[in-house]
């Protein structure tokens, strides 16, 4: 078995894989945040709670309705996205004329409520969610074992991220969206229903979080607090990447996941903190973020 910098390759590639998995989640979550921020100008603090709701939706669909993982992958994001639409219509839409910080405070409060309710019902130990049988097992790549499900997470995340990028940057719908980000009043004057677009955009961003939650369910346990800490890391990812570009959010997400994985190999004490340290360095050198514009 070979070694690289005194580290067995098996360990190195194992951590790289974990890093890519984490990076998949960072990318999907920060992408959702960036899409929402682009049009609504608010930071969606509820994102972590909505990611958790996606995992719980998968759990309910399996245990109450007997619908398997693949059904959940399609239905859970729709269900979570629908709750997002309700939240936007009932609450967020009242705040657009105010300072953007109120949106942050409102979504923070909502996250507390949602996480509290789920913890009340399900405790904080976490519920198991079985791996889909089609993706059980692993492949021997020669230098390491690659569990099929984990490979699937990376591929699916890349697909979803690329599709989102394509829709926003390369389609007519995306062009409307980008135009509304620049100048909502003008787009409205051209006859586009901007308020509905805002509602659906929020719903879509939230659905992305729900999708990430379903993907996470078989890897991590389904836990009411699973979104509470990851959301802070994702905020740091967003600061590092800058929210100006969709592709930036995706690349930063994956990149930082890998960096985190490598840190675990070479300096495990800093695994939890490395992303925050990188954020500090980026702020010193390029305050607008790696892909941001002033």
């Amino acid at each position: 078995m070979g070694e690289i910098f005194g580290v067995p390759t098996q360990v190195l590639f194992g951590q790289l894989l974990i890093g890519l998995i984490n990076g998949s989640f960072y990318a999907m979550l920060s992408l959702g945040l960036a899409v929402i921020f682009g049009l609504l100008n608010i930071i969606n603090f509820t994102h972590g709670a909505q990611y958790m709701m996606g995992a719980f939706a998968a759990y309910f669909l399996l245990n109450k309705l007997g619908l398997n993982y693949w059904w959940s992958l399609a239905l859970a994001p729709i269900a979570v996205g629908a709750t997002g639409v309700v939240v936007e219509r009932l609450m967020l839409s009242r705040l657009y004329k105010l300072d953007h910080l109120y949106g942050l405070l409102l979504t923070f409060g909502l996250a507390l409520v949602i996480q509290g309710v789920f913890r009340n019902e399900f405790g904080s130990t976490g519920l198991p969610y079985p791996m889909p049988s089609q993706l059980a097992g692993a492949k021997n790549l020669g230098f390491m074992f690659l569990p099929n499900y984990r490979a699937w997470v990376i591929v699916a995340s890349l697909l979803v991220c690329t599709a989102t990028w394509f829709v926003i940057e390369r389609t007519k719908l995306g062009a409307y969206l980008r135009a509304a980000t620049e100048n909502p009043a003008m787009v409205q004057a051209f006859g586009v229903n901007v308020p509905r677009m805002i509602t659906l955009t929020y719903g879509f961003g939230v659905a992305l979080a729900g999708f990430a939650g379903v993907m996470a369910a078989p890897i991590y346990q389904v836990n009411p607090l699973m979104g509470a800490d990851i959301i802070i890391v994702v905020f740091a990812v967003v600061v590092i990447g800058g929210m100006g570009s969709i592709m930036g959010a995706i690349l930063t997400g994956f990149g930082l996941g890998v960096v985190e994985g490598l840190t675990k190999v070479f300096y495990p004490e800093a695994t939890n903190t490395v992303i925050f340290v990188i954020m500090g360095i980026v702020l010193l050198i390029r305050p607008q973020g790696l892909f941001g514009s002033r």
């Binding site: 923070f108 507390l112 409520v113 996480q115 509290g116 309710v117």
Partner: peptide, 8 residues
């Protein structure tokens, strides 16, 4: 926690 969030 729920009450705190609701007050927010």
């Amino acid at each position: 926690t729920i009450t705190q969030g609701a007050i927010f």
